[in-house]
Write a protein that binds this DNA or RNA. Structure first.
Length: 287
DNA sequence: CTTGTGCCCTGACCGC
DNA sequence: TGCGGTCAGGGCACAA
């Protein structure tokens, strides 16, 4: 399930291949997956790929005109590169033939959007009538931004009575965390997932924000987490699944203290934590 | 405003 | 071997 580290890894795998190429041909095999402008996405040159939270943003130009192609992979979406025009594999919804710019050497490459569960979406914003999705516009601070620190969190946390887990999953609070990294971040910061967000001390907020940055960067260094579906643009798996401390480890001994990892349901999501390394933090529980 | 619930959708897995 | 049930969860609509 692509979260920030997986999306960033996809971005880095696509970047050197697709930038500077022109969308020469586009096939939308599944209507409804591509939203936004009615204009077909052909003729545009891909200038850059940026990322915001779990969204990828392709910057497109055509002469003086600019456009954006925004992509959210949700659960099982994949952007895959193919060097030959192969038969579309099952659950392929969009195929883009990327040609070298005129006068440039080399052959075409295909960029495939594949998504078994069809939760993912692409938005082509090629004219004024097309606007980005609300979720994109309402994203909270970007945790890999150099300016990101604990001061980005308190105002968002102060008025929230709900659990830390629910707040970390809220994309308007911090952009990019999903179920796996929310659990991993809470373990890294030694905080119990059910703690009310508003109960954190400033020292705990510092720890939490530092863990967000640390865990996400570590996962990017490992090319993301592949549990089931996730692969990058060249169909390569990540390795962060070998580094998980709590997610998916219910019933197994904590890798730090040996206590059995517990699992519960929080914010509608399965939540794993270590009952020893992640204390509630209540005064009466402190020895 | 906040918080919670159900839905979308397919494949993997489990028990019978 | 098949078959129904359950689970996985990101974001959104909707209700209270």
């Amino acid at each position: 399930m692509p979260e920030l580290p997986e999306v960033e890894t996809v971005r880095r795998s696509l970047l050197p291949v697709v930038c500077g190429r022109v969308i020469g041909h586009a096939e939308v095999l599944t209507p409804g997956v591509l939203l936004g402008s009615a204009t077909p996405p052909t003729g545009w040159r891909i200038d850059q790929i940026s990322r915001r939270g779990k969204y990828l943003v392709f910057g497109l130009t055509s002469g003086q005109k600019t456009a954006q192609l925004i992509v959210h992979l949700r659960m099982t979406g994949r952007l895959l590169l193919q060097e030959t025009d192969q038969q579309p594999v099952k659950h392929t919804h969009i195929r883009l033939r990327l040609d070298p710019e005129s006068g440039q050497p080399g052959g075409s490459i295909w960029l495939i959007y594949n998504d078994p569960r069809r939760f993912g979406r692409l938005w082509l914003l090629a004219d004024k009538s097309a606007t980005p999705p609300a979720g994109f516009l309402n994203l909270g601070p970007e945790p890999l931004d150099p300016d990101f620190n604990a001061n980005c969190l308190p105002e968002k946390f102060r008025n929230r009575r709900s659990s830390l887990k629910a707040v970390l999953l809220d994309q308007t609070v911090v952009a990019g965390l999903g179920n796996i990294y929310a659990d991993e971040v809470l373990f890294d910061s030694g905080l119990h997932p059910a703690r009310p967000a508003s109960s954190l001390s400033s020292a705990e907020l510092e720890r939490l924000s530092a863990s967000i940055v640390q865990v996400l960067n570590h996962a990017i260094d490992c090319q993301g987490t592949t549990l089931r579906d996730y692969v990058d643009g060249w169909n390569r798996k990540g390795t962060f699944q070998d580094c998980l401390m709590v997610y998916g480890r219910a019933g197994l001994p904590c890798r730090q203290c040996g206590t059995t990892i517990r699992q519960t349901r929080l914010a509608g999501r399965s939540t794993c934590w270590c009952p020893v390394c992640q204390q509630k933090g209540d005064a009466d529980e402190t020895p």
